[in-house]
C-alpha cells in the first residue's frame, strides 16, 4: 500500500486532487481511498487531504501519519505546516514552486521535486488552479499511476474544455517530472500524531476565548495576488479601507514634524508634476497594507475610484 498526503490551502482543490488520484488508481485496477481531514476551513486556510493506493481492499480508516508521498500545493505552507512529518525514508515530496528543490526550505536529506505548477496552470488553464498539474507531476515523479489514468479521471470530473486544458497541464507536468532524477533520502521523518497541536495552554471552563487572538493567524499566506498602492495618485478617500473584509488596510495619520515633512516633500513633487494635487494635500495621511493579513481578494483594487491599486502576482 502507498500512502499520499496532500497539503494545500482551501480552494486549491486539495480534496479534489486526492479524489482524482483515487479514481485514477482505480482506473489502473487498484484499490484506492481518498478522504479529507474534515475541517471548517475557508478558502486559503491550510487543508490536508489523503489518498491510499493498494493492490488489496483498504480497511484502514485513520489519517495518514507515515506517507510514502507528499504533495505540497503551495510552497508557503512549508513555513506554516510540517509537511514532511512522518515521511518514509525513501519518500518523495512534490512541491509546487518555481524554485529548485534545494531552495524550498526542506531538509537536504529529503527527496524533493519541485515543479512550477502555478506557472503551468496560469499558462495553460489561465487560472492558478494547480491540483491537476500536480497530479501529472505525481504520476511522473512516482510512477505509481499511469498518466492515462490521471487523464481519464480528470476528464470524468471536468468534461469539455475545462477538462482538456487541465489534462494538458497535467501532461506537461508529467513530462517535466519523468526527466527528473530520483534522489533517495536517508532518514525517515519523526512521526507526528495527527495535526501538530498549536497550543498547550490550559483550557478554560467552557470554550471561552480572549479578544482578538485570531491575529496570530497569518492569513496573508493565503494570497496569490497582492494589492500595490500608488500613493502618489491616492486621493485618500478611504474606500479601500472600507472595502477590506480582513482589516488589512490601515489609515495612519502622521503628526507633528513627520507630517510637516511629508507635506513639504509632496508639495515639491506636485510642483515637479510627479504627483496629483489631491495626493499632495493629504500626504500626511497614509493607507497602508498589512501584508500579514491581506488575503489578496482584490476588492480594494476593484473599488479604488482612481484605479490606484493594482493586483500583482505574489512571488513565492
Amino acid at each position: 500500500m502507498k500512502e499520499v498526503r496532500i497539503h494545500g490551502r482551501g480552494g486549491q482543490g486539495s480534496v479534489t486532487a486526492a479524489e482524482l488520484l483515487a479514481v485514477a488508481a482505480f482506473e489502473d485496477g487498484k484499490f484506492s481511498q481518498a478522504f479529507p481531514f474534515f475541517g471548517v476551513e475557508r478558502r486559503g486556510a491550510p487543508v490536508t487531504a489523503f489518498a491510499r493506493l493498494s493492490d488489496k481492499k483498504i480497511r484502514l480508516r485513520s489519517q495518514i501519519y507515515e506517507p510514502d508521498y507528499v504533495i505540497v500545493q503551495d510552497a508557503t505552507l512549508i513555513s506554516a505546516v510540517d509537511v514532511t512529518a512522518g515521511l518514509k525514508p525513501d519518500g518523495i515530496v512534490i512541491v509546487n514552486s518555481e524554485k529548485s528543490a534545494e531552495d524550498v526550505g526542506l531538509d537536504a536529506g529529503i527527496d524533493v521535486r519541485t515543479i512550477d505548477a502555478t506557472g503551468i496552470a496560469l499558462d495553460i488553464i489561465g487560472r492558478p488552479i494547480v491540483n491537476t498539474t500536480l497530479l501529472g507531476a505525481f504520476a511522473g515523479a512516482t510512477g505509481e499511476i499511469g498518466i492515462d489514468s490521471i487523464k481519464q479521471s480528470i476528464l470524468a470530473r471536468f468534461p469539455g474544455k475545462i477538462g482538456e486544458v487541465n489534462v494538458q497541464a497535467a501532461e506537461k507536468a508529467y513530462k517535466l517530472m519523468t526527466s527528473a532524477k530520483r534522489k533517495p533520502s536517508k532518514k525517515s521523518r519523526p512521526r507526528k500524531n495527527g495535526t501538530a497541536y498549536e497550543s498547550h495552554e490550559k483550557i478554560p471552563i467552557g470554550a471561552i476565548g480572549k479578544p482578538g487572538t485570531s491575529e496570530v493567524t497569518r492569513t496573508g499566506d493565503w494570497r496569490v495576488f497582492y494589492p500595490e498602492f500608488d500613493m502618489d495618485q491616492c486621493s485618500r478617500c478611504g474606500k479601500c479601507l472600507e472595502s477590506c473584509p480582513d482589516a488589512a488596510i490601515h489609515k495612519r495619520e502622521l503628526t507633528g514634524r513627520e507630517a510637516t515633512e511629508a507635506l513639504k516633500r509632496a508639495e515639491e513633487l506636485e510642483k515637479a508634476g510627479k504627483i496629483k494635487k489631491a495626493a499632495a494635500k493629504k500626504a500626511h495621511i497614509l493607507y497602508e497594507l498589512d501584508p500579514m493579513y491581506c488575503k489578496g481578494c482584490g476588492i480594494c483594487a476593484n473599488e479604488c475610484p482612481i484605479q490606484g491599486i493594482k493586483m500583482k502576482l505574489e512571488e513565492k
Binding site: G194, G206, A207, I208, K210
Partner: peptide, 27 residues
C-alpha cells in the same frame, strides 16, 4: 469570574476542533 462585559470582552461559545473537543468534554 467569566461573563459578557464590554470592559473585558470575552468570546463565549467558541467551537473546538478535534484537537480540543475531547479535553473540553473530559473537563
Amino acid at each position: 469570574t467569566d461573563y459578557l462585559s464590554v470592559d473585558d470582552p470575552k468570546t463565549f461559545g467558541m467551537f473546538a476542533d478535534p484537537n480540543y473537543y475531547t479535553e473540553f468534554r473530559y473537563q
